[in-house]
Simulated assay, not measured.
Amino acid sequence: MAYLLGFFIADGYIASQSQSIAFTQKDPTILEEIKNVFDSNQPLYKNKNTGVYSLLFHSKIMKNDLQTLFNITSEKSYNITFPIVSEQYIHYFIRGDFDGDGHVNIWILC
């Protein structure tokens, strides 16, 4: 789950007006793997303008957990802080963030 948290921080989205979260990515392969982790049959959506795929979950519980446990909001691009991740799982978190964004932000190195 640390990998998914890192990936979500890099390429995830929390809807401000609904009980939804989404994982986004240009390559659908990783989103298919995330579907398998969640044992979901939710289809992927492709934005016709950008070519970006989204895996959308309508879950009040998932949204609430991301907000309360990790302080991730719909404005995460502007106010994200490094989450508390157990040292034994930190490398999974960093890999997830890297797979999502393709680079490591300076806040990860602090």
Rank of each mutant, 00 (worst) to 15 (best):
75 E>G: 03
86 S>I: 08
81 T>C: 05
64 N>Q: 14
64 N>W: 07
66 L>A: 01
60 K>L: 09
76 K>C: 05
87 E>P: 07
73 T>C: 03
83 P>N: 05
78 Y>I: 05
76 K>G: 02
85 V>A: 04
88 Q>T: 14
89 Y>V: 07
65 D>G: 00
67 Q>D: 03
68 T>I: 08
61 I>S: 12
73 T>V: 02
71 N>L: 10
64 N>S: 15
68 T>D: 09
81 T>L: 09
66 L>W: 00
70 F>G: 00
72 I>P: 01
79 N>W: 02
79 N>I: 08
85 V>D: 02
72 I>Y: 04
85 V>I: 15
78 Y>A: 05
78 Y>R: 04
81 T>F: 10
69 L>E: 08
60 K>N: 10
74 S>V: 04
76 K>N: 07
61 I>N: 11
88 Q>P: 02
73 T>A: 02
67 Q>Y: 08
62 M>I: 06
63 K>T: 05
89 Y>R: 15
60 K>F: 07
62 M>T: 03
88 Q>W: 07
76 K>H: 11
82 F>T: 12
69 L>Y: 09
72 I>M: 02
83 P>I: 05
78 Y>K: 07
77 S>D: 14
65 D>E: 13
66 L>V: 03
70 F>N: 02
89 Y>G: 01
85 V>P: 06
64 N>G: 04
79 N>E: 13
86 S>A: 14
68 T>A: 06
69 L>Q: 13
68 T>F: 06
60 K>V: 09
75 E>P: 00
77 S>H: 10
83 P>W: 02
65 D>L: 11
81 T>S: 12
69 L>P: 00
68 T>M: 10
88 Q>C: 09
82 F>L: 15
87 E>Y: 08
64 N>K: 15
80 I>W: 00
72 I>V: 13
75 E>H: 05
83 P>H: 05
72 I>A: 01
76 K>F: 03
66 L>K: 01
77 S>K: 05
66 L>Q: 01
77 S>C: 08
86 S>Q: 13
64 N>Y: 09
81 T>Y: 06
86 S>D: 14
84 I>H: 06
72 I>Q: 01
63 K>P: 04
87 E>K: 15
80 I>F: 00
84 I>L: 11
80 I>D: 00
84 I>R: 07
76 K>D: 05
85 V>E: 01
63 K>V: 06
82 F>K: 13
78 Y>E: 09
71 N>C: 11
65 D>Q: 13
64 N>R: 13
70 F>P: 00
77 S>Q: 08
63 K>A: 04
78 Y>L: 10
71 N>M: 09
83 P>S: 06
79 N>T: 10
88 Q>A: 12
89 Y>N: 15
63 K>W: 04
79 N>V: 07
70 F>H: 13
67 Q>P: 00
85 V>T: 06
64 N>A: 09
75 E>R: 05
67 Q>R: 14
61 I>R: 12
82 F>Y: 12
